[in-house]
Structure formats: structure tokens, C-alpha cells
């Protein structure tokens, strides 16, 4: 990080006029980046909730519960994020009528749904894998203690899963955070889109390069700490 800052400082010193223009665009770009953070946090939150339910459904004894979950996971794990964002943006309504009133359904929220769908499919797989990794003997002993199947899941199995799934979950979070840049292609005003706006307004080759590099560095600053933390957790949880 220090090296990046040093390079940036050196470059700014060599190109003062360019640096001034770039600094002028910082608020506009920052607004865009806030959108990336909002989209990624919302998408992973919704995705985790739905994924948890789907993961448990995948292991249900009843076929009619299991089959739809398995099909959903297979399709959306293999679907490109970009295509899902296109699908949600262009095919979902812009507002929803709920209880007589209309609620706006803005583009960024559609991008959230577009990313939450694949996120939930991946999380379902993570959850399924984690539940399966817990020895079946625990289910049996919990049963003999009078726990129902759902209560066993809630109080005994899932708490253990949480620890095991954390690194995989964080990897997914980083991947969804990076996926939020795809929303620029459907016109959501996030960072990459803001950079194109800035580049169109300034119309200078060197500025164009500088602004896209700024986008690259911003995402790195967001995702790298997540990835470092993941590695530390992986090492700590490694058996």
C-alpha cells in the first residue's frame, strides 16, 4: 500500500495539472464507490439469508423440498453474473405495487438482486458442504437428547458451521464486491461508470488512464484487506 501511495505521489508531482483535475473529480468518484459498497453489502446480506435456507433445503429428506433447491443452485452457480444483472435490470419492473402503494425499485437495487442470486447459490453450496462436514454422530446424539431435527440444526450444527464457512463466505464477499463493477454496464452510477463519465467530460488521454487506474486502486483497497483477513482466518481454522 505504501508503495502504491509513493508511486501516486511521485506521479502527482510530475503531472501537477492532471493531479488537480483528478482531485476535482474525487467527490464524484467517491459517490460512485459508495454505490459499489452499498450494492455489495446488500447483495451479500440478502444472498447469505437465502443461501442459508437453500443450503438447508438441499439436505432435506423430502424430495419436493430438495429438488427445487438443487436445481436453483445448479443453474445460478453456473450463470454469469453479468447476464444475471442484465436479466434483473431489463426484466424486472421499475416499481412494485404493494398494498395499494407503489414502491420504487431503482437500478442499483436490481443490481443487488442480480448479484444476490448467484451469491445465494454459492452460499447454499458452502452451507451444504459445512453441514455435511459435521459428523452424523452429532445428529444422532442430539436426537437422543430429545432435540428435534430443526432444533439440532439451529443450536448444534449451524454454530459449528459458522466457523468453518467464514473463509469461504469472505471469499465470496470479495467476489461479489468486485462483481458490483458490472453494474456499470447497465447504467448504475457506480465507480466504473463515474470514471467513464469523468473521462468523457475531461477528454484527455492521460486523464482517462489515470482515472481508470484510480478505479483499480480503489477496488484493491476495498478487496485486499478482506482477502488478507480471509487468509488469516483460513490459517487459524486449518486443522
Amino acid at each position: 500500500m505504501a508503495a502504491v501511495a509513493a508511486v501516486a505521489a511521485l506521479w502527482a508531482a510530475l503531472q501537477p495539472d492532471l493531479a488537480v483535475i483528478l482531485i476535482g473529480w474525487v467527490p464524484y468518484l467517491a459517490q460512485g464507490f459508495a454505490m459499489n459498497i452499498l450494492i455489495s453489502v446488500a447483495a451479500i446480506a440478502i444472498g447469505s439469508l437465502i443461501g442459508l435456507i437453500l443450503g438447508v433445503m438441499e439436505l432435506a429428506p423430502a424430495r419436493w423440498i430438495r429438488a427445487p433447491a438443487i436445481t436453483y443452485v445448479h443453474i445460478f452457480r453456473n450463470a454469469p453474473h453479468l447476464v444475471l444483472i442484465f436479466a434483473t435490470t431489463y426484466a424486472m419492473p421499475f416499481e412494485i405495487t404493494l398494498l395499494g402503494g407503489t414502491v420504487a425499485f431503482p437500478d442499483w437495487l436490481k443490481a443487488v438482486v442480480g448479484l444476490a442470486i448467484p451469491a445465494s447459490a454459492h452460499i447454499a453450496e458452502i452451507v451444504r458442504g459445512a453441514i455435511q462436514s459435521i459428523p452424523t454422530a452429532q445428529w444422532e446424539s442430539a436426537g437422543s437428547l430429545g432435540f428435534s431435527r430443526l432444533r439440532t440444526l439451529r443450536w448444534i450444527i449451524l454454530p459449528q458451521c459458522l466457523r468453518r464457512t467464514l473463509p469461504a463466505w469472505m471469499n465470496l464477499y470479495a467476489s461479489i464486491a468486485m462483481g458490483s463493477a458490472l453494474a456499470s454496464l447497465v447504467g448504475v452510477g457506480e465507480l466504473l461508470h463515474a470514471a467513464t463519465d469523468a473521462s468523457t467530460a475531461v477528454r484527455r488521454t492521460d486523464f482517462t488512464i489515470a482515472v481508470y487506474l484510480t478505479v483499480l486502486v480503489s477496488f484493491f483497497a476495498y478487496c485486499y484487506p478482506i482477502s488478507r483477513l480471509t487468509q488469516r482466518l483460513e490459517r487459524r481454522f486449518a486443522v
Binding site: L185, T205, V215, F220
Partner: peptide, 26 residues
Amino acid sequence: VELTRNTPTLVQLSCAFLGLNMLISQ
């Protein structure tokens, strides 16, 4: 590896295609 894994592919592609590619042309 760290740079590649922690930045969006689309942003890398924009940098390469709109930035680097233009520098090469020039």
C-alpha cells in the same frame, strides 16, 4: 497475484483495453 485477485476483471479489462492498448498504439 494479489493485484489480479483483488480487482474486478471488468476494471482490469477497461484499464487494459481503454488505457494500455491506447498507449501501445501511440
